[in-house]
Write a protein that binds this DNA or RNA. Structure first.
Lengths: 124, 124, 124, 124
DNA sequence: GTGGTCTAGACCACT
DNA sequence: GTGGTCTAGACCACA
Protein backbone atom coordinates (compact mmCIF):
# COMPACT_ATOMS: atom_id res chain seq x y z
CA UNK A 1 0.00 0.00 0.00
CA UNK A 2 1.41 3.30 -1.15
CA UNK A 3 0.87 6.47 0.83
CA UNK A 4 1.49 9.84 -0.73
CA UNK A 5 1.33 13.14 1.07
CA UNK A 6 0.78 16.45 -0.67
CA UNK A 7 2.75 18.88 1.44
CA UNK A 8 1.23 21.82 -0.44
CA UNK A 9 -2.31 20.75 0.35
CA UNK A 10 -4.31 22.79 2.82
CA UNK A 11 -5.43 19.52 4.40
CA UNK A 12 -3.51 18.59 7.52
CA UNK A 13 -0.99 15.80 6.97
CA UNK A 14 -2.58 13.57 9.60
CA UNK A 15 -5.94 13.96 7.83
CA UNK A 16 -4.44 12.98 4.48
CA UNK A 17 -2.83 10.00 6.17
CA UNK A 18 -6.11 8.99 7.79
CA UNK A 19 -7.99 9.30 4.50
CA UNK A 20 -5.50 7.22 2.58
CA UNK A 21 -5.57 4.48 5.18
CA UNK A 22 -9.38 4.44 5.07
CA UNK A 23 -9.16 4.21 1.27
CA UNK A 24 -6.76 1.29 1.71
CA UNK A 25 -9.23 -0.51 3.94
CA UNK A 26 -12.15 0.21 1.61
CA UNK A 27 -10.28 -1.17 -1.41
CA UNK A 28 -9.11 -4.19 0.61
CA UNK A 29 -5.46 -3.30 0.17
CA UNK A 30 -5.25 -3.74 3.93
CA UNK A 31 -7.56 -6.21 5.55
CA UNK A 32 -9.15 -6.68 8.95
CA UNK A 33 -6.64 -8.09 11.42
CA UNK A 34 -3.57 -6.91 9.55
CA UNK A 35 -1.16 -4.48 11.19
CA UNK A 36 -0.21 -1.02 10.07
CA UNK A 37 3.49 -0.09 10.19
CA UNK A 38 4.84 1.25 13.48
CA UNK A 39 4.60 5.00 13.88
CA UNK A 40 8.35 5.40 13.54
CA UNK A 41 8.54 3.23 10.46
CA UNK A 42 5.68 4.92 8.63
CA UNK A 43 7.00 8.34 9.61
CA UNK A 44 10.35 7.52 8.06
CA UNK A 45 8.83 6.02 4.91
CA UNK A 46 6.56 8.98 4.29
CA UNK A 47 9.09 11.57 5.43
CA UNK A 48 7.13 13.12 8.25
CA UNK A 49 7.33 13.32 12.01
CA UNK A 50 6.51 10.36 14.24
CA UNK A 51 4.01 12.42 16.24
CA UNK A 52 2.02 13.26 13.12
CA UNK A 53 1.61 9.56 12.30
CA UNK A 54 0.65 8.97 15.91
CA UNK A 55 -2.11 11.56 15.62
CA UNK A 56 -3.49 9.90 12.48
CA UNK A 57 -3.55 6.53 14.27
CA UNK A 58 -5.25 8.06 17.31
CA UNK A 59 -7.98 9.53 15.11
CA UNK A 60 -8.42 6.24 13.26
CA UNK A 61 -8.86 4.51 16.59
CA UNK A 62 -11.45 7.02 17.79
CA UNK A 63 -13.36 6.65 14.54
CA UNK A 64 -13.42 2.87 14.85
CA UNK A 65 -11.06 1.75 12.10
CA UNK A 66 -8.16 0.35 14.09
CA UNK A 67 -7.33 -0.89 17.57
CA UNK A 68 -4.03 -0.40 19.30
CA UNK A 69 -2.76 -3.83 20.31
CA UNK A 70 0.12 -3.75 22.77
CA UNK A 71 1.92 -6.51 20.94
CA UNK A 72 1.01 -6.03 17.30
CA UNK A 73 0.75 -2.23 17.22
CA UNK A 74 -2.08 -0.71 15.16
CA UNK A 75 -4.36 -3.46 13.85
CA UNK A 76 -7.23 -2.97 11.41
CA UNK A 77 -10.39 -3.62 13.43
CA UNK A 78 -13.62 -2.17 12.10
CA UNK A 79 -16.09 -1.05 14.71
CA UNK A 80 -19.27 -0.79 12.65
CA UNK A 81 -21.62 1.61 14.37
CA UNK A 82 -23.79 1.86 11.30
CA UNK A 83 -26.44 4.21 12.65
CA UNK A 84 -23.82 6.75 13.59
CA UNK A 85 -21.96 6.25 10.33
CA UNK A 86 -25.12 6.76 8.26
CA UNK A 87 -25.97 9.99 10.05
CA UNK A 88 -22.43 11.27 9.60
CA UNK A 89 -22.52 10.45 5.91
CA UNK A 90 -25.93 12.04 5.44
CA UNK A 91 -24.73 15.30 7.00
CA UNK A 92 -21.71 15.42 4.72
CA UNK A 93 -23.67 14.40 1.65
CA UNK A 94 -26.13 17.18 2.33
CA UNK A 95 -23.57 19.95 1.99
CA UNK A 96 -21.84 18.14 -0.88
CA UNK A 97 -25.08 17.90 -2.88
CA UNK A 98 -26.04 21.46 -2.01
CA UNK A 99 -22.77 22.56 -3.58
CA UNK A 100 -23.55 20.37 -6.55
CA UNK A 101 -27.00 21.92 -7.02
CA UNK A 102 -25.48 25.40 -7.07
CA UNK A 103 -22.98 24.26 -9.68
CA UNK A 104 -25.57 22.67 -11.98
CA UNK A 105 -24.59 19.09 -11.25
CA UNK A 106 -27.67 16.97 -11.84
CA UNK A 107 -29.03 14.18 -9.70
CA UNK A 108 -28.25 11.70 -12.48
CA UNK A 109 -24.66 12.84 -12.67
CA UNK A 110 -24.24 12.31 -8.93
CA UNK A 111 -25.65 8.78 -9.18
CA UNK A 112 -23.22 8.05 -12.01
CA UNK A 113 -20.32 9.39 -10.01
CA UNK A 114 -21.27 7.23 -7.03
CA UNK A 115 -21.35 4.13 -9.24
CA UNK A 116 -18.02 4.95 -10.86
CA UNK A 117 -16.34 5.37 -7.47
CA UNK A 118 -17.85 2.14 -6.15
CA UNK A 119 -16.58 0.29 -9.24
CA UNK A 120 -13.10 1.76 -8.74
CA UNK A 121 -13.02 0.69 -5.12
CA UNK A 122 -14.45 -2.78 -5.18
CA UNK A 123 -12.75 -3.52 -8.47
CA UNK A 124 -16.06 -4.08 -10.23
CA UNK B 1 -33.32 31.96 6.53
CA UNK B 2 -32.21 30.68 9.90
CA UNK B 3 -28.55 30.19 10.70
CA UNK B 4 -27.50 28.08 13.64
CA UNK B 5 -23.95 27.70 14.82
CA UNK B 6 -22.72 24.82 16.99
CA UNK B 7 -19.94 26.40 19.00
CA UNK B 8 -18.84 22.99 20.27
CA UNK B 9 -18.41 21.59 16.78
CA UNK B 10 -14.94 20.79 15.53
CA UNK B 11 -15.86 22.63 12.35
CA UNK B 12 -14.74 26.25 12.21
CA UNK B 13 -17.54 28.76 12.63
CA UNK B 14 -16.89 30.39 9.26
CA UNK B 15 -17.14 26.98 7.59
CA UNK B 16 -20.48 26.30 9.28
CA UNK B 17 -21.65 29.73 8.14
CA UNK B 18 -20.52 29.09 4.58
CA UNK B 19 -22.22 25.69 4.51
CA UNK B 20 -25.51 27.02 5.76
CA UNK B 21 -25.51 29.81 3.21
CA UNK B 22 -24.79 27.31 0.43
CA UNK B 23 -27.67 25.18 1.74
CA UNK B 24 -29.86 28.28 1.62
CA UNK B 25 -28.95 28.88 -2.02
CA UNK B 26 -29.48 25.22 -2.95
CA UNK B 27 -32.94 25.15 -1.38
CA UNK B 28 -33.83 28.49 -3.01
CA UNK B 29 -34.36 30.19 0.33
CA UNK B 30 -32.07 32.85 -1.06
CA UNK B 31 -32.06 33.45 -4.77
CA UNK B 32 -29.64 34.77 -7.34
CA UNK B 33 -29.42 38.57 -7.12
CA UNK B 34 -30.64 38.79 -3.53
CA UNK B 35 -28.39 40.21 -0.84
CA UNK B 36 -27.08 38.57 2.28
CA UNK B 37 -27.23 40.55 5.54
CA UNK B 38 -24.39 42.97 6.18
CA UNK B 39 -21.33 41.62 7.96
CA UNK B 40 -22.11 43.62 11.07
CA UNK B 41 -25.77 42.62 11.13
CA UNK B 42 -25.17 38.90 10.64
CA UNK B 43 -22.41 38.89 13.24
CA UNK B 44 -24.75 40.44 15.77
CA UNK B 45 -27.69 38.18 14.94
CA UNK B 46 -25.67 35.00 15.20
CA UNK B 47 -23.55 36.19 18.11
CA UNK B 48 -20.12 35.87 16.53
CA UNK B 49 -17.21 38.07 15.58
CA UNK B 50 -17.40 40.32 12.51
CA UNK B 51 -14.09 38.96 11.25
CA UNK B 52 -15.63 35.50 11.17
CA UNK B 53 -18.55 36.59 8.99
CA UNK B 54 -16.12 38.44 6.77
CA UNK B 55 -14.07 35.31 6.32
CA UNK B 56 -17.14 33.28 5.38
CA UNK B 57 -18.15 35.87 2.76
CA UNK B 58 -14.63 35.98 1.34
CA UNK B 59 -14.59 32.20 0.97
CA UNK B 60 -18.04 32.22 -0.64
CA UNK B 61 -16.77 34.76 -3.14
CA UNK B 62 -13.65 32.74 -3.93
CA UNK B 63 -15.77 29.64 -4.43
CA UNK B 64 -18.11 31.44 -6.81
CA UNK B 65 -21.32 31.78 -4.82
CA UNK B 66 -21.52 35.53 -4.18
CA UNK B 67 -20.08 38.82 -5.32
CA UNK B 68 -19.18 41.66 -3.01
CA UNK B 69 -20.76 44.96 -4.04
CA UNK B 70 -19.91 48.20 -2.29
CA UNK B 71 -23.51 49.31 -2.24
CA UNK B 72 -25.54 46.12 -2.10
CA UNK B 73 -23.10 44.14 0.05
CA UNK B 74 -22.89 40.40 -0.55
CA UNK B 75 -25.08 39.43 -3.49
CA UNK B 76 -25.81 35.88 -4.57
CA UNK B 77 -24.11 35.40 -7.93
CA UNK B 78 -23.35 31.86 -9.02
CA UNK B 79 -20.20 31.37 -11.05
CA UNK B 80 -20.69 27.88 -12.45
CA UNK B 81 -17.33 26.33 -13.24
CA UNK B 82 -18.81 22.90 -13.63
CA UNK B 83 -15.67 20.95 -14.56
CA UNK B 84 -13.88 22.16 -11.46
CA UNK B 85 -16.97 21.55 -9.31
CA UNK B 86 -17.33 17.99 -10.58
CA UNK B 87 -13.72 17.14 -9.84
CA UNK B 88 -13.98 18.64 -6.36
CA UNK B 89 -17.13 16.66 -5.67
CA UNK B 90 -15.59 13.45 -6.99
CA UNK B 91 -12.60 13.79 -4.65
CA UNK B 92 -14.82 14.33 -1.64
CA UNK B 93 -17.24 11.58 -2.61
CA UNK B 94 -14.31 9.16 -2.87
CA UNK B 95 -13.33 9.47 0.78
CA UNK B 96 -16.99 9.64 1.85
CA UNK B 97 -17.84 6.39 0.07
CA UNK B 98 -14.65 4.73 1.31
CA UNK B 99 -15.79 5.50 4.84
CA UNK B 100 -19.19 4.10 3.96
CA UNK B 101 -17.73 0.85 2.63
CA UNK B 102 -15.83 0.32 5.88
CA UNK B 103 -19.02 0.91 7.84
CA UNK B 104 -21.15 -1.54 5.82
CA UNK B 105 -23.17 1.11 4.01
CA UNK B 106 -24.24 -0.42 0.69
CA UNK B 107 -24.24 1.20 -2.72
CA UNK B 108 -28.03 1.04 -2.77
CA UNK B 109 -28.28 2.82 0.56
CA UNK B 110 -26.06 5.62 -0.75
CA UNK B 111 -28.22 6.03 -3.85
CA UNK B 112 -31.30 6.20 -1.63
CA UNK B 113 -29.67 8.78 0.60
CA UNK B 114 -28.76 10.91 -2.41
CA UNK B 115 -32.37 10.82 -3.64
CA UNK B 116 -33.75 11.66 -0.21
CA UNK B 117 -31.46 14.66 0.09
CA UNK B 118 -32.32 15.88 -3.41
CA UNK B 119 -36.02 15.60 -2.59
CA UNK B 120 -35.51 17.53 0.64
CA UNK B 121 -33.68 20.31 -1.13
CA UNK B 122 -35.73 20.83 -4.24
CA UNK B 123 -38.91 20.17 -2.37
CA UNK B 124 -39.73 17.17 -4.59
CA UNK C 1 -8.98 26.79 42.38
CA UNK C 2 -5.42 25.75 43.19
CA UNK C 3 -3.65 23.14 41.12
CA UNK C 4 -0.53 21.47 42.39
CA UNK C 5 1.61 19.08 40.41
CA UNK C 6 3.97 16.59 42.03
CA UNK C 7 6.81 16.37 39.55
CA UNK C 8 8.27 13.41 41.43
CA UNK C 9 5.07 11.39 41.15
CA UNK C 10 5.00 8.41 38.83
CA UNK C 11 1.63 9.62 37.62
CA UNK C 12 1.77 11.51 34.34
CA UNK C 13 1.38 15.26 34.73
CA UNK C 14 -1.65 15.39 32.44
CA UNK C 15 -3.32 12.70 34.59
CA UNK C 16 -2.66 14.69 37.79
CA UNK C 17 -4.07 17.74 36.07
CA UNK C 18 -7.17 15.85 34.93
CA UNK C 19 -7.73 14.43 38.42
CA UNK C 20 -7.44 17.78 40.12
CA UNK C 21 -9.87 19.36 37.72
CA UNK C 22 -12.35 16.53 38.31
CA UNK C 23 -11.91 17.06 42.04
CA UNK C 24 -12.59 20.75 41.48
CA UNK C 25 -15.84 19.96 39.69
CA UNK C 26 -16.89 17.43 42.32
CA UNK C 27 -16.33 19.90 45.14
CA UNK C 28 -18.11 22.65 43.18
CA UNK C 29 -15.02 24.86 43.11
CA UNK C 30 -15.70 25.07 39.38
CA UNK C 31 -19.26 24.87 38.19
CA UNK C 32 -21.07 23.80 35.07
CA UNK C 33 -20.81 26.47 32.39
CA UNK C 34 -17.70 28.09 33.78
CA UNK C 35 -14.53 28.23 31.71
CA UNK C 36 -11.16 26.73 32.53
CA UNK C 37 -8.08 28.89 31.89
CA UNK C 38 -6.61 28.84 28.38
CA UNK C 39 -3.98 26.17 27.82
CA UNK C 40 -1.22 28.76 27.66
CA UNK C 41 -2.34 30.49 30.83
CA UNK C 42 -2.69 27.33 32.89
CA UNK C 43 0.60 26.02 31.55
CA UNK C 44 2.35 29.16 32.71
CA UNK C 45 0.64 29.19 36.11
CA UNK C 46 1.49 25.59 36.83
CA UNK C 47 4.91 25.71 35.24
CA UNK C 48 4.45 23.04 32.60
CA UNK C 49 4.26 22.86 28.84
CA UNK C 50 1.23 24.06 26.91
CA UNK C 51 0.91 20.70 25.12
CA UNK C 52 0.63 18.86 28.41
CA UNK C 53 -2.30 21.01 29.48
CA UNK C 54 -3.81 20.49 26.06
CA UNK C 55 -3.62 16.73 26.53
CA UNK C 56 -5.36 16.95 29.90
CA UNK C 57 -8.16 19.03 28.34
CA UNK C 58 -8.50 16.56 25.45
CA UNK C 59 -8.88 13.67 27.89
CA UNK C 60 -11.41 15.61 29.97
CA UNK C 61 -13.41 16.22 26.82
CA UNK C 62 -13.35 12.56 25.80
CA UNK C 63 -14.45 11.55 29.28
CA UNK C 64 -17.36 13.96 29.19
CA UNK C 65 -16.36 16.64 31.70
CA UNK C 66 -15.78 19.62 29.43
CA UNK C 67 -16.61 20.85 25.96
CA UNK C 68 -14.34 22.94 23.80
CA UNK C 69 -16.24 26.07 22.81
CA UNK C 70 -14.62 28.01 19.99
CA UNK C 71 -15.29 31.28 21.74
CA UNK C 72 -15.08 30.51 25.45
CA UNK C 73 -12.38 27.84 25.36
CA UNK C 74 -12.79 24.84 27.67
CA UNK C 75 -16.15 24.99 29.42
CA UNK C 76 -17.33 22.65 32.16
CA UNK C 77 -20.13 20.59 30.61
CA UNK C 78 -20.95 17.27 32.25
CA UNK C 79 -22.06 14.54 29.89
CA UNK C 80 -23.63 12.09 32.31
CA UNK C 81 -23.56 8.64 30.77
CA UNK C 82 -24.39 7.02 34.07
CA UNK C 83 -24.50 3.41 32.93
CA UNK C 84 -21.01 3.66 31.51
CA UNK C 85 -19.78 5.58 34.53
CA UNK C 86 -21.17 3.00 36.96
CA UNK C 87 -19.51 0.13 35.10
CA UNK C 88 -16.21 1.97 35.03
CA UNK C 89 -16.43 2.67 38.73
CA UNK C 90 -17.38 -0.91 39.53
CA UNK C 91 -14.36 -2.25 37.65
CA UNK C 92 -12.02 0.07 39.52
CA UNK C 93 -13.67 -0.54 42.88
CA UNK C 94 -13.25 -4.27 42.37
CA UNK C 95 -9.47 -4.13 42.19
CA UNK C 96 -9.36 -1.49 44.93
CA UNK C 97 -11.38 -3.64 47.33
CA UNK C 98 -9.44 -6.76 46.37
CA UNK C 99 -6.29 -4.95 47.45
CA UNK C 100 -8.05 -3.93 50.63
CA UNK C 101 -9.08 -7.49 51.44
CA UNK C 102 -5.48 -8.65 51.10
CA UNK C 103 -4.39 -5.87 53.43
CA UNK C 104 -6.96 -6.63 56.15
CA UNK C 105 -9.12 -3.59 55.47
CA UNK C 106 -12.63 -4.48 56.59
CA UNK C 107 -15.86 -3.79 54.81
CA UNK C 108 -16.88 -1.44 57.60
CA UNK C 109 -13.67 0.54 57.26
CA UNK C 110 -14.28 0.99 53.54
CA UNK C 111 -17.80 2.26 54.17
CA UNK C 112 -16.44 4.72 56.70
CA UNK C 113 -13.79 5.91 54.29
CA UNK C 114 -16.41 6.44 51.59
CA UNK C 115 -18.52 8.54 53.97
CA UNK C 116 -15.54 10.59 55.10
CA UNK C 117 -14.58 11.39 51.52
CA UNK C 118 -18.15 12.30 50.60
CA UNK C 119 -18.32 14.64 53.59
CA UNK C 120 -15.03 16.26 52.58
CA UNK C 121 -16.24 16.82 49.06
CA UNK C 122 -19.79 18.03 49.51
CA UNK C 123 -18.78 19.94 52.58
CA UNK C 124 -21.17 17.94 54.73
CA UNK D 1 -7.33 -19.63 38.27
CA UNK D 2 -8.00 -18.14 34.86
CA UNK D 3 -6.09 -15.11 33.64
CA UNK D 4 -7.36 -13.12 30.72
CA UNK D 5 -5.51 -10.26 29.10
CA UNK D 6 -7.13 -7.57 26.97
CA UNK D 7 -4.43 -6.61 24.53
CA UNK D 8 -6.45 -3.64 23.34
CA UNK D 9 -6.78 -2.19 26.81
CA UNK D 10 -4.97 1.00 27.66
CA UNK D 11 -3.78 -0.71 30.82
CA UNK D 12 -0.31 -2.22 30.59
CA UNK D 13 -0.30 -6.01 30.42
CA UNK D 14 1.79 -6.37 33.58
CA UNK D 15 -0.74 -4.25 35.45
CA UNK D 16 -3.63 -6.40 34.24
CA UNK D 17 -1.65 -9.47 35.32
CA UNK D 18 -0.94 -8.00 38.75
CA UNK D 19 -4.59 -7.03 39.23
CA UNK D 20 -5.89 -10.46 38.32
CA UNK D 21 -3.47 -12.15 40.69
CA UNK D 22 -4.53 -9.80 43.49
CA UNK D 23 -8.16 -10.64 42.68
CA UNK D 24 -7.21 -14.33 42.91
CA UNK D 25 -5.73 -13.83 46.36
CA UNK D 26 -8.69 -11.75 47.55
CA UNK D 27 -11.18 -14.40 46.44
CA UNK D 28 -9.05 -17.17 47.97
CA UNK D 29 -8.55 -18.87 44.64
CA UNK D 30 -4.89 -18.83 45.55
CA UNK D 31 -3.97 -19.03 49.20
CA UNK D 32 -1.08 -17.93 51.37
CA UNK D 33 1.88 -20.27 50.90
CA UNK D 34 0.83 -21.54 47.48
CA UNK D 35 3.01 -20.92 44.43
CA UNK D 36 2.22 -19.02 41.26
CA UNK D 37 3.20 -20.62 37.95
CA UNK D 38 6.79 -20.12 36.81
CA UNK D 39 7.49 -17.03 34.75
CA UNK D 40 8.12 -19.11 31.65
CA UNK D 41 4.98 -21.19 32.10
CA UNK D 42 2.64 -18.29 32.75
CA UNK D 43 4.09 -16.35 29.82
CA UNK D 44 3.41 -19.27 27.52
CA UNK D 45 -0.11 -19.94 28.86
CA UNK D 46 -1.21 -16.34 28.52
CA UNK D 47 0.68 -15.68 25.30
CA UNK D 48 2.86 -12.82 26.46
CA UNK D 49 6.52 -12.03 26.90
CA UNK D 50 8.51 -13.49 29.83
CA UNK D 51 9.78 -10.04 30.73
CA UNK D 52 6.20 -8.90 31.21
CA UNK D 53 5.40 -11.70 33.67
CA UNK D 54 8.64 -10.97 35.45
CA UNK D 55 7.69 -7.34 35.83
CA UNK D 56 4.28 -8.26 37.27
CA UNK D 57 5.90 -10.57 39.83
CA UNK D 58 8.44 -7.92 40.79
CA UNK D 59 5.69 -5.39 41.38
CA UNK D 60 3.68 -7.91 43.40
CA UNK D 61 6.71 -8.47 45.58
CA UNK D 62 7.32 -4.77 46.10
CA UNK D 63 3.69 -4.29 47.04
CA UNK D 64 3.84 -7.10 49.58
CA UNK D 65 1.74 -9.84 47.98
CA UNK D 66 4.36 -12.50 47.17
CA UNK D 67 7.89 -13.52 47.91
CA UNK D 68 10.32 -14.82 45.34
CA UNK D 69 11.93 -18.10 46.37
CA UNK D 70 14.71 -19.69 44.29
CA UNK D 71 13.21 -23.16 44.64
CA UNK D 72 9.46 -22.58 44.95
CA UNK D 73 9.27 -19.57 42.63
CA UNK D 74 6.66 -16.93 43.43
CA UNK D 75 4.90 -17.78 46.69
CA UNK D 76 1.89 -15.93 48.05
CA UNK D 77 3.05 -14.14 51.20
CA UNK D 78 1.04 -11.18 52.40
CA UNK D 79 2.94 -8.38 54.04
CA UNK D 80 0.18 -6.37 55.69
CA UNK D 81 1.28 -2.79 56.13
CA UNK D 82 -2.20 -1.61 56.90
CA UNK D 83 -1.51 2.05 57.54
CA UNK D 84 0.15 2.45 54.16
CA UNK D 85 -2.58 0.40 52.47
CA UNK D 86 -5.34 2.53 53.98
CA UNK D 87 -3.71 5.77 52.84
CA UNK D 88 -3.21 4.40 49.34
CA UNK D 89 -6.84 3.30 49.17
CA UNK D 90 -8.08 6.63 50.45
CA UNK D 91 -6.17 8.52 47.76
CA UNK D 92 -7.59 6.33 45.03
CA UNK D 93 -11.10 6.38 46.45
CA UNK D 94 -11.00 10.16 46.49
CA UNK D 95 -10.58 10.52 42.74
CA UNK D 96 -12.96 7.59 42.12
CA UNK D 97 -15.73 9.19 44.18
CA UNK D 98 -15.06 12.60 42.64
CA UNK D 99 -15.68 11.03 39.23
CA UNK D 100 -18.83 9.43 40.63
CA UNK D 101 -20.15 12.74 41.96
CA UNK D 102 -19.72 14.32 38.52
CA UNK D 103 -21.59 11.44 36.94
CA UNK D 104 -24.55 11.56 39.33
CA UNK D 105 -23.63 8.42 41.25
CA UNK D 106 -25.05 8.79 44.74
CA UNK D 107 -23.40 7.93 48.03
CA UNK D 108 -25.96 5.17 48.56
CA UNK D 109 -25.19 3.63 45.20
CA UNK D 110 -21.49 3.55 46.05
CA UNK D 111 -22.19 1.81 49.37
CA UNK D 112 -24.32 -0.74 47.53
CA UNK D 113 -21.62 -1.32 44.99
CA UNK D 114 -19.06 -1.86 47.73
CA UNK D 115 -21.30 -4.44 49.40
CA UNK D 116 -21.99 -6.22 46.12
CA UNK D 117 -18.30 -6.50 45.35
CA UNK D 118 -17.51 -7.74 48.86
CA UNK D 119 -20.21 -10.38 48.53
CA UNK D 120 -18.83 -11.46 45.17
CA UNK D 121 -15.34 -11.79 46.55
CA UNK D 122 -15.88 -13.49 49.87
CA UNK D 123 -18.70 -15.54 48.46
CA UNK D 124 -21.17 -14.03 50.86
C1' DG E 1 -4.60 36.20 21.85
C1' DT E 2 -6.29 31.43 21.19
C1' DG E 3 -6.02 26.75 19.79
C1' DG E 4 -4.39 23.56 15.96
C1' DT E 5 -0.67 21.63 13.56
C1' DC E 6 3.87 20.16 12.72
C1' DT E 7 8.44 19.36 13.85
C1' DA E 8 12.13 17.74 16.95
C1' DG E 9 14.59 15.65 20.62
C1' DA E 10 14.75 13.30 24.87
C1' DC E 11 13.63 9.92 28.44
C1' DC E 12 11.09 6.20 30.19
C1' DA E 13 7.83 2.30 30.35
C1' DC E 14 6.65 -1.66 28.12
C1' DT E 15 7.11 -5.82 25.36
C1' DG F 1 12.66 -1.66 19.37
C1' DT F 2 7.96 0.18 20.46
C1' DG F 3 4.76 3.53 22.04
C1' DG F 4 3.89 7.06 25.82
C1' DT F 5 5.14 11.26 27.84
C1' DC F 6 7.09 15.70 28.22
C1' DT F 7 9.32 19.61 26.57
C1' DA F 8 10.08 23.25 23.14
C1' DG F 9 9.64 26.30 19.31
C1' DA F 10 7.44 27.73 15.20
C1' DC F 11 3.71 28.90 12.00
C1' DC F 12 -0.96 29.31 10.80
C1' DA F 13 -6.02 29.40 11.30
C1' DC F 14 -9.46 31.32 13.95
C1' DA F 15 -12.19 34.63 16.66
Amino acid sequence: MIIEIDFNSDEAIYIQLRNQIIMGIATSEIQEGESLPSVRQLAETVGINMHTVNKAYTVLKQEGYIQLDRRKGAVIALDVNKIEAVEKMRAQLRILLARGLCKDISRVEVHEMVDEIYDEMIGG
